[in-house]
Structure formats: structure tokens, C-alpha cells
Amino acid sequence: MGTVVSIELADEVPESDLSGFVDMTCAWLHEVDGRFSTYKPDSEVCRLRDGTLKPADASPDLRLVLDRCADLWRDTDGYFDAYAGGALDPSGYVKGWSVEVASQRLAAAGSQRHFLSAGGDIRMRGAGPGGRPWRVGVRHPFEADKLAWVLSLTDGAVATSGTYERGAHVFDPRTGKPAAGLRSVTVVGPDLAVADAYATAALAMGERGLAWLAKRVADGYESAAVTDDGRAFTSPGLPVVS
């Protein structure tokens, strides 16, 4: 998926169990990468793009992702669009979804205290080391050596989308131009795949994304954003450490 994944386990179990948890998680993420890669010609996504794979013959995971991308396209008024670049690219959903599923699989296998991070997409479950909440630093979008916020959570997801590292990689699907107005958007909520998609959609919307994010609070999704001119906004329930 073109990113680095880190796994932290706080479970008080034998070391062999911890190694098994890591191996299981890595195997799943490699499986996802092989299936959803947009640059490996034999991936399902690439074969669907070039017509050598019919949608009806796709794996259950790919069909699920396509259905959820379609749902999010409707929920975001078209601002989350797996076809924004012309060809199918569900990466904006897949990264968060794959980590969310990894966390669910870890929980089912017996890991109730873990922290998974994949390129700014984070899913934590249970308490951290010492029984304390996990802490997540949100990078300052203008000063790389500083944090804009520090969040404290025991269960939940954190997703950040911004223009400060990869430049203009998110586009406004209505204009076809790079997103402008917001430099960084962070969304906190119960499901990482949804939080990731919401952060991407809000960034694509520009400043009108601030009002759109405020409406997501009722669904359990808090947010923080920094505009291109340096103004900062947070929703009332954002779990910020003072």
C-alpha cells in the first residue's frame, strides 16, 4: 500500500502469542496489498481496470469495498470518489478498512489491547501500556517538528488527510482541480475506514468541509482541521489532552 505499518501490543500474554498476532496481521495486510494494489498488474483492482476481471468474478472483499465506496460517494455528496482520477482507485478506503479489519481479527484472536498505525491511519483497542489510554500526536501541518494536537483514546480510530507531505494528491471531483482551503483534516471515530473516508472527503470539499464535518458528530465522528491560512478548528468532543 506504499506505506509503513507499525504494530504495538499491550496484551499480557506469552511472547509466542504476541508473535502470532504480528504474523497474522502482516499476512492480512500483504494479502490486501496484493489484491488492491493499483500498480501490480496481477492485482484484482488492476485486472478489473483493464477488463480481464469481471465484477461478478471479483473476490468478496473487492465487492465489499466497491459497495462501501459507492455508499460513501452518496454519503459525501460525491466528494469521496474512488473514480476521482478517472480509473478505479479505492485506496482512500482500503487502507483504513484493512487496518480496521486487522484490529477486528486481532480482537477475535485474543488481543484486546493493541495499536495499529498505517501512514496516518490509526486503530487502537483497549488500554495502552500500564493501563493508560493510548496517545496520538497529530502533526502540525506547517511545522513538521511540532504537534497540532495530542489525542487520548482507549478505543477508536484516528485518520488524518492533508496536503503537507504528499502535496496535491486529493482532488475536488467537481472541478477536477487539487483540493484547496484545508491543509489538514483529522477525524476520530469508531470505524477507521469511515474516519479515513470522511477525512479525505472533507479535504476535497475545502472550507465547506468544516460544516460538513460538524454534522458527523451526531454519528460519533469528532474532527480537527487546519485551513490553508493557518486557522484551526475542533469539534467539541475531540479527545484532546490539555
Rank of each mutant, 00 (worst) to 15 (best):
T76Q: 11
D33H: 14
F80S: 00
E12S: 03
F80L: 04
K54H: 15
D75M: 13
G34Q: 12
K40N: 14
A27H: 07
C69D: 04
V65M: 00
L62V: 15
D77C: 09
T52L: 00
E12C: 04
S59Q: 12
P55Q: 07
S19T: 05
R74A: 13
L72A: 08
A84K: 05
S19Q: 15
E15C: 01
D57W: 03
D77E: 13
D67Q: 10
S37P: 04
P60C: 07
T25Q: 06
F80C: 01
F80D: 02
G51S: 15
F36R: 13
W28H: 14
W73M: 08
S16P: 04
G78M: 08
G78L: 11
W28V: 10
A56H: 04
V22Y: 06
R68C: 03
R68Q: 12
T25G: 07
S59I: 06
L29D: 09
V65G: 00
S59L: 04
D71G: 02
T52D: 01
D81K: 05
G78C: 09
A87T: 12
G85Q: 10
K54Q: 14
Y83A: 05
V65Q: 00
D71L: 03
P41H: 06
L64Y: 04
T52A: 00
A70S: 14
L72T: 08
